[in-house]
Amino acid sequence: MTQALRTRLGGWALLAPLGALLGLLLVVPLGIGLWYSFREGSILGIGSSLTLDNYRDVLGRDSFWVAVRTSVLYGAATALTAVLFGFFIARYVRFERPRYARLIVGAALLAIMGGYLVRIYAWRTLLSDGGVINSGLIEAGVIDSPLRSLLFSPGAVIATLVSIYAPYATLVILSGLDNIGDDEVEAARDLGAGPVRAYKLVVLPLIGRSVLLAFSLVFLLSAADYVIPPLVGGPRTQMAGVFVANQFLATGDTPMGAAFGFTTLLVLAFVVTLVWAALRVVGMLPKEAVRR
């Protein structure tokens, strides 16, 4: 056995535990789900014959596509807001107040680990007709009667989603900015670039992958959320996750649920691909930076 072969085999052996874990927790469940999505099913069980009927039904369900559109719109709005929010916080900490970095990381982790439902209900308390904002505005004489558009609206859903998922974006972007040396930015400034040009030419291309990751993470989590819309959204804020959940929980039709799930996954992956392409076009994902 040659040295090169031994090295290669050693590398594969070292990677095997991680690969097996990925396979067991990600590839196997997805594979089973995909296989099930092509089978007949009902609450009584899963049939053995293969069929495309589940996907035909999915394509023909207008209400599902309305929900998918809602998911994409809310997910994109949430991700965009979270990325902007995360970028400005991370930029401030990285370049202006580095000593706050640990504080911000701690605060973001605390927010991530904090109670999901508690925060949703906190928004309810803030936004309801008799809530803090309306009461404050009435006390201040700004309005005479409560603003009924605060709660149970698309804005309430997006605000709640942002408050829950923005910490993820902040952490990812902060980690990306942490890899940029001061000398790189200073070199750009020494060569005559203004602050905006230095960001455009140096900072943004170097954190392009972090931005894409932050956007994708927040987008996928928020587009798939089906708990927040019923609690703070209006009657027209149903998202695609509800269809997937209903098939598994309410009708017991696992194959149909898998078909809804994989169709949603494809749509969401397509949106992420579009964002990736857009970042490439605007120069935020240069090929040269990929191996950094």
Binding site: G19, A20, L22, G23, V27
Partner: peptide, 9 residues
Amino acid sequence: AAAVGLSAS
């Protein structure tokens, strides 16, 4: 890692 995982699973 993904390739190894696929084979293992």
